[in-house]
């Protein structure tokens, strides 16, 4: 396989995952805004901070309004992480790697692009927002489904999966990092339950509210949320789950190619260093510092994979 193709598959699925994550963040923000009681607070800046685009938003707009924040995150071409930009980038990469994906995957990706593009051609008003977000989720899910159902389990699939899980881990880490202060045991009074809105924001951002309740019950403790999002191997968006998947897929590559590289060592190290603790140890180390370290390790691993598999000359 060409290094460029590995790169294209990796980024196609990273962008697809990013589009989905950002759609989910918008949905959560919207939901919080609707259910909030009391004085209006700025829910949107933290959301944009999570996507890493709050500063570029501020360059374009003077104030944060719901309408402009949603538009920015959903369809602004100047925002490289907006849902529209991400879908476009995913599809550009898919065009580049058409020979490496099945006709079904390409068809689903192109259909996703065509439909999302037309749904986002104009500003989306609040009334239509749920439908539009639903469409985005559905169309990206179709690409994922076609990928699972039709792609050979070979290097193409592995690079696609590695892209997916690196992006997902990064997204979960960012959500945790924007909200880490509400999860610290020292914030508010120790042992108290979290503000409903705060924890719901977090759990909804990762589609994990119902799952969490099943696993941990109705009472929400900050340490349990951290456990759920960082260490819980059952949770498909937890850092631990993502790290294992990255390591597994790198492992398949190593056996297909008959060669273990630097990235394999790094992935092993990452799993061992970050995922073999209990949640108390994380708090002892410092949640923020821990998350920062994980993000840095994920970045470094991403770069190493690019080098090891010759994404670029």
């Amino acid at each position: 396989m060409l290094g460029k193709t590995a790169n294209g598959l990796y980024w196609m699925f990273r962008y697809l995952e990013r589009a989905e994550n950002n759609a989910r963040l918008i949905e959560t923000g919207q939901r919080i805004a609707l259910t909030r009681s009391g004085a209006p607070t700025d829910e949107w800046t933290p959301v944009m901070k999570t996507t890493g685009t709050d500063l570029s938003y501020a360059q374009k707009y003077d104030t944060v309004t719901k309408e402009s924040a949603i538009d920015w995150m959903l369809r602004d071409p100047e925002n490289p992480s907006s849902v529209r930009s991400s879908i476009e980038a995913a599809r550009q990469n898919a065009r580049m790697v058409r020979t490496a994906v099945t006709a079904e995957v390409w068809g689903a990706m192109n259909g996703c692009y065509i439909d999302v593009k037309s749904a986002l051609a104009r500003r989306v008003n609040e009334r239509d927002l749920p439908n539009v977000l639903g469409l985005i989720r559905q169309r990206t899910a179709l690409v994922r489904g076609a990928t699972h159902g039709t792609m050979l389990r070979n290097d193409s699939y592995d690079f696609a999966r590695i892209g997916t899980f690196l992006e997902r881990a990064d997204n979960t880490a960012r959500i945790l990092d924007t909200k880490y202060y509400v999860l610290l045991p020292t914030s508010a009074s120790v042992g108290s339950h979290l503000d409903n809105i705060q924890w719901e924001t977090i759990l909804r951002s990762v589609s994990g509210a119902a799952g969490f309740r099943k696993a941990y019950g109705q009472k929400v403790k900050p340490s349990e949320i951290v456990d759920f999002l960082v260490l819980d191997k059952r949770m498909p968006r937890s850092l631990n789950f993502c790290c294992q998947k990255i390591r597994d897929n790198l492992g398949y590559l190593a056996s297909e190619y008959g060669q273990r590289l630097e990235a394999h060592q790094m992935a092993d190290d990452m799993c061992r260093r970050f995922m073999s603790h209990d949640v108390e140890a994380i708090f002892d180390y410092g949640l923020h510092e821990y998350i920062q370290d994980v993000v840095a390790a994920l970045n470094a691993l991403g770069h190493q994979i690019e080098r090891d598999y010759r994404f670029f000359a």
């Binding site: 396989m1 060409l2 290094g3 460029k4 590995a6 598999y309 010759r310």
Partner: peptide, 10 residues
């Protein structure tokens, strides 16, 4: 001395 393409393995 040959034209080569960059693959994931060289």
């Amino acid at each position: 001395g040959r034209l080569c393409m960059r693959t994931t393995q060289g």
